[in-house]
Design a protein around this nucleic acid. Structure first.
Length: 1039
RNA sequence: GGGCCUAUAGCUCAGCUUGGUUAGAGCGCUUCCCUGAUAAGGAAGAGGUCGAUGGUUCAAGUCCAUCUAGGCCCA
């Protein structure tokens, strides 16, 4: 073991590239897995990024956390396999390819050929995966990309099919006609996820429409009465099927000042009909049920039925928040409408074709795009006198996020997973899950589960896992659980088949029920099912790797950004529960988003995207990683920019590096190489530094157990600062002397910091390990074990004493600053008052004397003629006892003669009298502050004080001059380019009497300090080093 | 429109769970000090109506309500 030369300056990005080479060449990641093979497994699942675009900085964020915890756990002895994964399927990939090929829609794809189109999709995925791989490697995210799972792999599809068959066999995979958002241009339904991206603010016509009542009590009593409905989608009036009211709401039958009679919700009457309207009667919604009315357009034919078409229905969801409290029902275009009308057995009529146009046979609007038809329809309503009011209505309406076509809520056949059937189970699984932060569990995610709707699984698209259901003309369904299963029905050719469209579409077989030919249904599945199936599909389970899967289910840890709440976090839990009756993860870390420097979301559109690789090439991957993990809370949105990243580098990483360089410099200059540690006779400061290092190892350990990287990072930063700016600063002399105990102590402390930092900043810590700590047994910091703090000595009392020492030093510096006497001028004494002072060991007092540059320290407390005592209330203690009376008691305490009061308190307990009542006051009830009397230079804070005696004498002055000269020579050594260990010859002369005394009296001390082997008074003609103020001239030469 | 999160110094953020009387850190700024880790380090200062309003309390940055602004998710 030898210390290598550590340069004071470091090019972080350059160093990182070297380390990447080392890791690869020495296979460190593989060794870290092999080393921990016998340890307990800590299961991590990689959420596959969608390979449909370039990676962004937000991908780095998630990957930092996905790397920190596995590295940490590995150092703690766990085995943490990390299998990479790529999400390959889905509309995003298709759209990217469509754009590349300049396609306008599905017709173009079919013309081009599905096989060719899907081949292009596959290529596109491969290209983007390469970019992700490059980013992943550059940032030092250790994940096995050679064994990555790809959701488009045949074995993966086999597993997905297997799970779908399990769900199908439970009766939970069903086809249904439901209303879902649908893009007429793309010709497919959209997932909720896609929907969210496409809301646009638009202005629609909102209309109040009269529906004349055609029978029943109301119209008998009030002839001409009409229902009044409100809608923002006039085009749906064509297929009006019913009107719905809330059974528990009161409705007014009211007359407008124009003499018309309407039924509207009582709560909305004034706002809709005007304040002048008069109420003729009031009924409940319940009483309106069954009231027949005349529909606005009678162009659509309804099938013959006994169901109550064009009457009033009851529906709890109707509110009186806006509109009229009566909702027009068109079940083909609204999920709630459909549910309400279904309950009454009403038929679903749909005059709009899948391309978004009204079918040709509809008068006036046949062949017109649904949204465009609004104005024509409003005009007709106006002409017929059934339009009551017409207002522009601004709202956000979903559009296709890619082609900006207005979406239509559209009833169409789709395949669903009936997740509502397992809702209670999902809620129970969520209860067992640890969320970080905890608020997601019962908040965002819990709400989502409570409002669970069935999973719309199918997509009428091309590049996706085909839905493995075959259907015959009779409608018998056969769900196939993999290619092997398919081969049972359709022959062995299926075994080797690419299980994508169009190949799978060509496979037919005799229906097992009736023998008719069964062919596959046309749909593919939502790609979110693919990623949610990764716990087993990544291993091709159950077709292969059965043990591997069983040993790694469920996961101990998953981590993604918060937008995955309803994405991957949900699909993982849902599929796990559907297939294995158990959620697939135990702990989930939910990250906040990364924003730009102005707090805006990063988007291509705004041009504020930070590209990860250039960012890391500028600041270093460690810097970016440290920033992500430590700056701010992981689960809160955070701003990232060049300045903020540069700052963390300077503050913590460079301070750490400087300390390492310091250690290396002095160890090497005294031929100390770290092979033998001498820790036998440590100083108090040595004991403190080591004790604090082990405390750090413990506290970082505890913080990371709670996934709290911010706390861990703050602890590390504090320790690095303590080590550098207190331990090293105070121990410099010992390092100059090559003190083996000091070198051993700093060696050990740095080793511990290096280890606890390693999960966060794997590059710089590896560099340091190679330079200082490399041994034959442990060739990488990432193969080392977490520092063993359990058996180490952590001395809390010493820590408190050092903390007090440092506070006193701060007071000393503050007093120096106000005194105007330079710190280089020694002073005779300082007086200190602080609780616990009497126990401060001599060695720590020495630190204070040295830092403050005084010859002696004395305790202030006992010499009462020098001190003023003040006493004030401790509100926390008094408040608990006296509540309302606290302020008067506090005032009474302040009014006491402080000196006598404190004396009484210290004797026993004191008494204050308020309004004739006496109260016992104890020491706990007050805060006592002792400050020196006037005439001293004093600094105090929080009841602790230091006072400087500013009196000077000749000797003190001489010592001050000696120190000035020392400093002058040291400066000259440096500017002359001498090495720190060069010995010198000093020739001096003095023109000032004081200086002469100082040089004579303290010459030996100065000589020792500046490494002078010869110290002589003599001829200094031509000296470059002269100080007129001091009256000193000096000639330096190398010895 | 609904739910959740956030708002503290010029900037980036702690503190809020468990209320206690001078609200902190880092960066930046001014002045000074120290100096063989030195393109570092330290001290002092300027800079805060702790988003707004109201409430609870002897006491509110901290608890409650409402509002405003931003973010996220949903509709």
């Amino acid at each position: 073991m030898t210390y290598r030369d550590v340069p004071a300056k470091i090019d972080l990005p350059l160093m990182e590239r070297e380390i990447l080479g080392f890791w690869q060449q020495a296979a460190i990641f593989e060794k870290s897995l092999a080393k921990s093979e016998d340890g307990p497994t800590w299961v991590f699942y990689e959420g596959p990024p969608t390979a449909n675009g370039k990676p962004g900085t937000h991908h780095v964020e998630a990957r930092v956390f996905k790397d920190v915890f596995p590295r940490f756990r590995t150092m703690k002895g766990y085995h943490v396999p990390r299998k990479a994964g790529w999400d390959c399927h889905g509309l995003p990939v298709e759209l990217a390819v469509e754009k590349e090929l300049g396609f306008a829609g599905k017709q173009d794809i079919e013309k081009y050929g599905i096989a060719e189109f899907n081949a292009r999709c596959r290529e596109s995925v491969l290209q983007h995966v390469d970019e992700f791989a490059a980013m992943t490697e550059r940032m030092g995210y250790w994940v096995d990309m050679d064994q990555a799972y790809w959701t488009m792999d045949a074995s993966y599809v086999d597993s997905v099919w297997w799970s779908l068959k399990k769900i199908f066999d439970k009766g939970l995979l069903v086809q249904d006609h439901r209303v879902s958002p649908y893009c007429p241009r793309c010709g497919t339904g959209l997932s909720d996820h896609e929907l969210a991206q496409g809301y646009e603010d638009i202005v629609d016509a909102s209309v109040f429409v009269k529906l004349p009542i055609t029978g029943g009590k109301i119209v008998e009593q009030f002839p001409g009465a009409a229902l009044l409905v409100w809608t923002t989608t006039p085009w749906t009036l064509v297929s009006n099927t019913a009107a719905a009211v809330n059974p528990n709401v009161e409705y007014d039958i009211a007359k407008t000042d124009a003499g018309e009679i309407f039924v509207v919700a009582a709560a909305l009457r004034e706002s809709v009909l005007g304040e002048d309207s008069t109420v003729l009667a009031t009924v409940t919604g319940q009483e309106l049920e069954g009231t027949p009315y005349q529909r606005p357009f009678n162009w659509v034919e309804f099938p013959d039925t006994d169901a109550p078409i064009h009457t009033v229905l009851l529906a709890e969801y109707v509110t009186t928040e806006d509109g009229t409290g009566i909702v027009h029902q068109s079940p083909a275009f609204g999920a709630e409408d459909l549910a309400t009308c279904r309950a009454y057995g009403l038929p679903v009529v749909n005059p709009v074709a899948p391309n978004g146009e009204f079918v040709a046979e509809i008068p006036h609007v046949g062949g017109v795009f649904f949204k465009t038809a609004d104005s024509t329809l409003v005009d007709i309503l106006k002409q017929e006198g059934t339009l009551f009011k017409h207002l522009p209505y601004e709202h956000s309406y979903p559009h296709c996020w890619r082609c900006h076509t207005a979406l239509i809520y559209y009833a169409q056949p789709s395949w669903y997973i009936r997740t509502t059937a397992i809702k209670d189970q999902l809620i129970a699984q969520n209860e067992k899950t640890n969320w970080f932060p905890d608020t997601i569990k019962n908040g965002r995610f819990g709400d989502w589960l409570n409002n669970n709707v069935d999973w719309a699984l199918s997509r009428n698209r091309y590049w996706g896992t085909p839905l493995p259901i075959w259907r015959c003309a009779e409608g018998h369904l056969t769900c196939v659980g993999g290619r092997a299963d398919l081969a049972q029905y359709a022959g062995d050719a299926a075994l080797e088949m690419d299980p994508h469209r169009p190949f799978v579409d060509d496979v037919t077989f005799p229906c097992p029920t009736c023998g008719d030919t069964a062919s596959r249904v046309p749909e593919v599945i939502d790609c979110w099912f693919d990623s949610g199936a990764m716990p087993f599909a990544q291993y091709g389970y159950p077709q292969s790797n059965v043990e591997k899967f069983e040993a790694s289910y469920p996961a101990d840890f998953i981590c993604e950004a918060i937008d995955q709440t309803r994405g991957w976090f949900y699909t993982l839990m849902a599929i796990g529960t559907l297939v294995f009756d158990e959620s697939s993860y135990k702990n989930v870390l939910c990250l906040g988003h990364i924003l730009d420097e102005d707090g805006r979301k990063m988007s291509k559109h705004l041009g504020n995207v930070l590209e990860p690789i250039p960012l890391m090439d500028e600041h270093g991957a460690d810097a970016l990683r440290w920033f992500m993990a430590v700056s701010g809370s992981p689960w809160q949105a955070r701003r990232v920019g060049h300045t903020t990243i540069a700052e963390v580098v300077r503050k913590t990483l460079l301070t750490y590096w400087n300390t390492v360089a310091f250690q290396s410099l002095y160890a090497r200059s005294s031929q100390w190489d770290g092979s033998v540690l001498t820790l036998d006779n440590p100083t108090d400061l040595d004991r403190w530094a080591l004790s604090e290092a082990y405390r750090l190892a413990r506290e970082v350990d505890e913080a990371l157990e709670q996934f709290d990287t911010q706390r861990a990072g703050r602890l590390i930063a504090e320790y690095v600062d303590d080590l550098s700016n207190w331990y090293v600063r105070r121990s410099r002399r010992r390092f100059w002397d090559g003190d083996a105990v000091a070198l051993s102590t700093l060696h050990q402390c740095l080793k511990i910091v290096t280890q606890v930092m390693a999960p966060f900043t794997p590059f710089i810590t590896e560099r340091v390990w190679q330079d200082l700590f490399l041994t034959a047994d442990v060739e990488s910091v990432h193969l080392s074990n977490w520092p063993d703090w359990q058996t180490a000595t952590i001395d809390d009392k010493l820590n408190e004493q050092v903390a007090l020492t440092r506070r006193i030093v701060e007071l000393g510096r503050a007093a120096r600053a106000t005194s105007g006497v330079k710190t280089r001028q020694p002073l005779q004494r300082a007086l200190v008052a602080a609780a616990g002072w009497s126990e401060i060991p001599e060695s720590l007092q020495e630190q204070i004397r040295d830092e403050v540059n005084v010859l002696a320290l004395e305790e202030l407390g006992e010499s009462s003629e020098l001190v003023d005592v003040s006493v004030k209330a401790n509100f926390k203690s008094l408040g608990a006892r006296f509540a309302k009376e606290t302020p008067v008691i506090a005032a009474a305490i302040a009014a006491q003669n402080a000196a006598e009061f404190v004396a009484a308190l210290r004797e026993n307990s004191a008494i204050v009298e308020v309004g004739g009542t006496t109260h016992n006051i104890s020491l706990d009830d007050v805060v006592i502050t002792e400050v020196p009397r006037e005439g001293w230079t004093v600094a105090s804070a929080d009841g602790e004080s230091l006072a400087l005696d500013l009196a000077l004498n000749d000797d003190l002055i001489a010592q001050g001059i000696a120190r000035d000269i020392t400093r002058m020579i040291q400066d000259a050594r440096k500017t002359s380019g001498f090495d720190i260990s060069d010995r010198i010859v000093v020739t001096w002369s003095a023109s000032d009497a004081n200086a002469l005394v100082a040089l004579q009296t303290y010459g030996e001390r100065i000589a020792a300090e500046v490494l002078a082997t010869t110290w002589q008074q003599g001829d200094t003609n031509g000296a470059t080093l002269r100080d007129e103020e001091l009256g000193v001239s000096i000639v330096l030469a190398k010895a």
